[in-house]
Computed example of a mutant assay.
Amino acid sequence: MTDIFSRIAHSRTADEVVQQIESLVLEGVLRVADRLPAERELARQFDVSRPILREALKTLEARGLIVTRHGGGTYVADVIGQVFTQPMLELIGSHREAGADYLEYRREIEGIAAEYAARRATEDDRALLAQIMARMQAAHERGDFEEEAEIDVEFHHAIGECAHNIILLHTLRSLYRLLSDGVFQNRLLVFSLPGAREELLAQHKAIHAAVVGGRPAVARKAAMDHITYVEHSMAEAERTGDWQRVSRLRLRQRTEDGARRSGQEK
């Protein structure tokens, strides 16, 4: 991890260290499962004694913001947590209308995020988005569906970060948790539709261009149009999957019937 921690210039107390790490978590700079530097290095970056640092880390762990693994380092805790209980997750995953509601909500939230990002993105934000888009393009050219889908989620994460709104950021992260937890298993089905990968890439490029170009209204529309396309494509992919399933069963039934008739005729 690069030096994201600032030297404590004045009192050099544990409270100062706690406040700085809390801010980095709240602002989304430190993310779930990020590993903190080793104690010696962290004390050096903060310019505090190791006893002061240990006191600060103990306080942060008591507040549930970090976890220490014996012999394995210190990590940012799962501050997003489980958005829904396991029974509710199972209900969401098994009922089609929940998926539609999820995408409807995402369409509005991501439209706002893209609009804010177009207004507020810094040069560093734009550099990060450019890196993500380059990786997305490379995965697309390799035909790596799974990696392209993962970078897709990363791209939307980054747009949320560029919006520079803490509540919006963590709301979006909780939404994407449903994807990373596999609640909507059929999201990869979209990539199997003819022309879908090319269309999705073009849509991400449109969102990216509007954000870096500082066009809030265009960015919002591009983000919302993207989710609408995903919604329609998922429905089409599900229908196509159902058709294929039925066709496969029909073929199997006809083949078995033909074999039985052939045996009876003999």
Rank of each mutant, 00 (worst) to 15 (best):
M1N: 09
D3C: 07
S11P: 08
R12N: 06
R12L: 15
Q20W: 11
L24H: 13
L24C: 09
L26K: 08
G28R: 05
G28F: 06
R35G: 10
P37Q: 09
A38D: 08
R40D: 04
E41H: 01
Q45Y: 10
Q45I: 14
R50A: 00
P51A: 05
G64D: 01
T68C: 03
T68D: 02
H70K: 09
D78F: 12
Q82W: 14
F84K: 04
G93D: 03
G93N: 05
E97F: 14
A98N: 05
Y102V: 10
Y105C: 13
R107F: 13
G111R: 08
A118V: 11
T122F: 14
T122V: 15
M133Q: 06
R142N: 04
G143M: 06
F145H: 00
E150R: 15
F155Y: 06
H156A: 07
L168T: 12
T171Q: 05
R173G: 10
L175A: 10
S180G: 00
S180H: 13
D181N: 12
G182N: 00
V183T: 13
V183E: 01
Q185W: 15
N186C: 10
F191H: 10
A196V: 13
E199Q: 11
L201R: 14
A202R: 12
K205A: 15
A206N: 02
A206Q: 09
V211N: 04
V211F: 06
G213M: 11
A219E: 05
R220S: 01
A222M: 09
H232A: 11
M234D: 03
M234L: 15
A235R: 13
G241T: 11
D242P: 02
R245A: 04
V246K: 10
L249S: 02
R250H: 15
L251H: 15
R261A: 13
